[in-house]
C-alpha cells in the first residue's frame, strides 16, 4: 500500500511539472498564426458585467455584446463562431494575462487610453461609453457636484473610472473592488454612496436591480477598444477589418440594439 501511494505521488508530481513547463514555451510570434494552429480563439472577457459579458449561473453560459463580437471574430478567422474559448478577466488582471500570452485578445469593456497604449495595442473604437454614477433611487447625489468629502464612491481596481473619479471629485473617498459584481454588491450593502464606471456597464446593473439609477449624465469619454499584444499589427488590422465588416453589413447595429435596447448614435 505504502509503495503504491509513493509511486502515485511521484506520478502526479511528474505530470504537474510537465504541465507547468509545457505551458512556458507556448508563445507564438503572431497571434493570428497561433490561433490558426490551435483552431480556437482565446478571448479575455468579463464574466460579471451585464450587457457585455455576464455568466448565467443557471446555464453556465457567458453572454453579452463583447461575447458576440468575439464570436464574429472566430467566424471571420476560423470560419466557425463556436471556435472560441472564453477566459474570465477583471480590469485588474486583463493586461498581464494578455502580455503573458494566455489570451489572444481582450474584449472586456476596455477603454483606450494613452497609458494603456504603452502596454498593449488597440483596435478601432467599437463602443462609445462615458463614465457616470449609479446611486440608490432617491439618493441626494445628483451628479459629480454632489460628491464631497463625506461621500464614498465605489470603483473597480485597474479601471479608468477609478483614476478619473479621483481627478473629477478629489474630495470624495474612493474605494476599489476586485470586479464589478463585488463593487455593486458593496453598493447594495451600503458601503458607498455611489458607484462609478462606464454608463453602459451601469445600465446593465440598473437592469439587474431597478432600485438603482444613473445620475449626472456622462463626464468622460470612454471609447472601448479590443486590446491586442503589443507590436502585432497584423492582428490589429484583422480585428479592424472585422469591425468594419460588422458595421457595413449591419450586424454591428443589430447586436448593439439587441443588447443596449437603442440604436447606436
Amino acid at each position: 500500500m505504502n509503495k503504491l501511494l509513493r509511486t502515485h505521488f511521484l506520478l502526479i508530481l511528474i505530470v504537474v511539472v510537465a504541465i507547468v513547463f509545457t505551458g512556458c514555451n507556448s508563445k507564438k510570434d503572431t497571434t493570428l498564426g497561433a490561433i490558426k494552429d490551435r483552431g480556437k480563439v482565446i478571448v479575455g472577457v468579463k464574466y460579471d458585467t451585464k450587457l457585455f459579458g455576464l455568466k448565467d449561473p443557471a446555464t453556465g453560459k457567458v453572454e453579452g455584446f463583447d461575447i458576440d463580437i468575439a464570436k464574429a471574430l472566430a467566424k471571420k478567422v476560423l470560419g466557425d463562431e463556436t471556435k472560441i474559448q472564453l477566459k474570465e478577466v477583471t480590469s485588474k488582471t486583463r493586461i498581464p494575462l494578455l502580455q503573458n500570452g494566455e489570451i489572444d485578445l481582450i474584449i472586456a469593456t476596455m477603454t483606450i487610453t494613452e497609458e494603456r497604449k504603452e502596454q498593449v495595442d488597440f483596435s478601432d473604437v467599437y463602443f462609445k461609453a462615458g463614465q457616470s454614477l449609479l446611486v440608490k433611487k432617491g439618493s441626494p447625489i445628483q451628479g459629480l457636484d454632489s460628491l464631497t468629502k463625506d461621500t464614498k464612491v465605489l470603483a473597480v481596481k485597474g479601471s479608468t473610472s477609478a483614476t478619473n473619479i479621483r481627478e473629477k471629485a478629489p474630495a470624495a473617498e474612493v474605494l476599489e473592488y476586485e470586479n464589478y459584481q463585488d463593487a455593486f454588491t458593496a453598493l447594495k450593502a451600503g458601503k458607498g454612496d455611489a458607484l462609478t464606471t462606464d454608463n453602459a456597464i451601469l445600465l446593465g446593473m440598473q437592469k439587474q436591480d431597478p432600485g438603482y439609477v444613473l445620475v449626472g449624465g456622462t463626464f468622460t469619454d470612454e471609447p472601448y477598444g479590443i486590446a491586442i499584444r503589443k507590436g502585432d499589427s497584423e492582428f490589429v488590422s484583422t480585428v479592424n477589418d472585422l469591425l468594419k465588416e460588422l458595421k457595413d453589413d449591419g450586424t454591428y447595429d443589430k447586436l448593439y440594439e439587441q443588447w443596449m435596447g437603442v440604436k447606436p448614435e
Partner: peptide, 21 residues
C-alpha cells in the same frame, strides 16, 4: 478584497497605475 486599506489593497492600487506587477 473588501477595500480594507491594508498593504495588499494599496499594492493593487499602485499596480493599476504602473502596470509593473
Amino acid at each position: 478584497v473588501v477595500a480594507g486599506m491594508d498593504l495588499m489593497y494599496y499594492a493593487d492600487l499602485i499596480n493599476s497605475d504602473t502596470f509593473l506587477p
